[in-house]
Nucleic acid binder design. Structure first.
Lengths: 343, 343
DNA sequence: GCTCTATATGTAAGCGCTTACATTTATTAT
DNA sequence: ATAATAAATGTAAGCGCTTACATATAGAGC
């Protein structure tokens, strides 16, 4: 069943059929209805390849993710996919590892599939060394690139993120202003977001003229159990800390396990702030206080910006949301701004 | 940069270039090398649309998921994507809701994109009423359909799953054989897997000639907190239970929260078995005993079967793995068979 | 050296669409 | 009614590939 079959049945030329399929040129209402009826009845679907060949698009968006089985990723992909689908685009998923080479290669592969745009899911794609981001710029030369939860200033690159640095600075400030000094920032290395969190943490100390022992910023990548062990090791080195601000909920739960291992009462003797408001946070006991980074909104913003760009309209190069603290059982000093739905 | 440009530079016809791109017809080694060199140097990539038009494939596989932000899904998608990519296929992701209509529509949309096959991720796609599965059969008439974690006997449908019924039966049997009688099965309704678990549970009682109060099989769909409340309600109705076998780790953690709410010591007074071996299980305290359904292997099996089919080789209509119990802190009666890596 | 076969390459016809341009038909103004 | 204009439709040329078939070249056997 192709466009010729339809045109024959309708007694018109294929051009007319094409016109009603695309709805951009004028067709008389009568023939339009007739053709529409035939299309409905025969269940005709235009061949994407032929269409793609003519229009040079298949209405798909590439989603490039680093490691994907984690909480952040799976929710992001979910939200993005829903938003894209609502805009009549499909998502091609590509999960790279962390190595630069793989990323560049997978990105190219996505472009070879003629995606209309690429969304980089997660901030781990952005390297501090500018030259390492060349592969992103290369992609942006071909199609719009959207970065979720990261920021890179470049032509044809659009970023939707939440102000990780600011919220960490705020949270740190609350602790400091309550006289707490023995804070620890436990964050993952390899991401733009991680670097913002570090900056926010440092900034809160600096603004108050307080010294910051570099051992209090712990860059760490690993599982929950490994995070616990890491903290045990840090404590064993003689550093005292009674507060952990974590880069994500996994690390925060690692901190919670550390507190359990040390028989520290949470939140009375030991305070923990998570990040991401993931499902993990409501599994533990006490439940995790965490920072809601508005992932769902970030994703809508990202897709909204993308749709603007694809329709030739202007879009902000950066949309930044502010994060909220959700206080549950592992902290005492905060007011919950609000729980955003979802969990 | 298209095939004509390459052919010009190489001083050959486009057919020859095409032949080296596809590597199926004979080309002299000399010209092959020359063309390969030019391709490498010009960074030429054949146009997928033109290629698709000729070959009627773009090497993509559709992944249809129900609700996707959950633990099971995100891991499944991750494993599948990796396996597909390794086989030089890309994954188009489509997350449907639970409604039949949406599923059928999204499946069609996937087929319209000319995917080479469809993988139904999760067993919720299979309805007990046979006629409701017509949309799957329709799809199978066009392309191979793979079902992950579910079973449907039909032409061109291939299933990779784990024997949920058997493991639940085994686990239930262990409890029963230790004289435990006050068991509760807490499972989600809407899936093939859920129905298998129910059957396994019942079966263990039946084999021993033990009566089973129907209130002991609780069909429930909801969040962790809702699961806790549900169990509180069940207890309030006057049903005593000291063991919960859960359909997934979320429900199990709900049961754990129930035990906490009732001040029941876990595992001494109250025993809980989770399902899926998700990350949630290591967040709580005590950590969750759970059933490892070998998701990673299921996914490799699914993709392996698919690749066979796509290459015209025979593939088993059903590959079924057996599950393992992983005993952690919420049970006492089991031996861990082995932890399969990943978490 | 010549025929016969195998191997290498070229030619050209699609694949199913979109769309610029040409043509026909309907509408409006005069 | 008729010319001028707008709207509707048709014609045909791509889009960039694959591949059946035709042709040319090389290798083998005698």
């Amino acid at each position: 069943m192709n466009i010729y079959d339809i045109s024959k049945k309708a007694g018109v030329s294929i051009a007319t059929v094409s016109r009603v399929m695309n709805g951009n040129a004028s067709v008389s209402e009568k023939t339009r209805q007739k053709i529409l009826a035939i299309i409905a009845e025969t269940d005709y679907t235009p061949n994407v390849f032929a269409r793609g060949l003519g229009l040079n698009t298949m209405k798909t968006i590439g989603l490039l993710c680093a490691d994907s089985s984690d909480q952040f990723f799976s929710r992001a992909v979910y939200y993005l996919e829903r938003a894209l689908r609502a805009s009549h685009y499909d998502a091609i998923l590509s999960c790279t590892g962390m190595e630069l080479e793989t990323r560049a290669e997978y990105l190219k592969r996505l472009l070879a599939k003629k995606v209309d745009a690429v969304i980089l899911v997660g901030s781990s794609f952005i390297e501090p060394v500018a030259s390492h981001n060349q592969y992103i710029l290369d992609a942006a030369a071909e199609v719009p690139v959207i970065i979720l939860n990261g920021y890179l200033k470049a032509p044809n690159v659009y970023c939707a993120l939440c102000d990780d640095g600011d919220i960490v600075s705020q949270v740190t400030s609350v602790y400091l202003d309550h006289g707490k000094r023995d804070l620890l920032l436990l964050y993952r290395s390899d991401s733009y977001s991680g670097r913002c969190k570090l900056a926010g943490f440092k900034n809160a100390f600096a603004k108050r003229g307080l010294p910051l022992d570099p051992r209090r910023t712990v860059l760490f990548n690993g599982t929950i159990a490994q995070a616990r062990d890491k903290l045990l090791a840090v404590a064993e080195q003689g550093l005292f800390f009674d507060t952990v601000i974590a880069g994500d909920d996994e690390l925060a739960i690692g901190a919670l396990k550390y507190a359990k291992a040390r028989h520290l009462a949470v939140p009375e003797q030991f305070s923990i702030m998570g990040y991401n408001n993931s499902q993990l946070g409501v599994c533990c006991e006490p439940e995790l206080s965490t920072i809601d980074n508005q992932l769902s909104f970030c994703c809508s913003n990202a897709v909204a910006a993308l749709m603007s760009v694809l329709n030739g309209k202007p879009a902000p190069a950066k949309t930044m949301l502010s994060a909220n603290v959700i206080q549950r059982g592992t902290t005492t000093l905060f007011d919950t701004v609000r729980e955003s739905g979802g969990l």
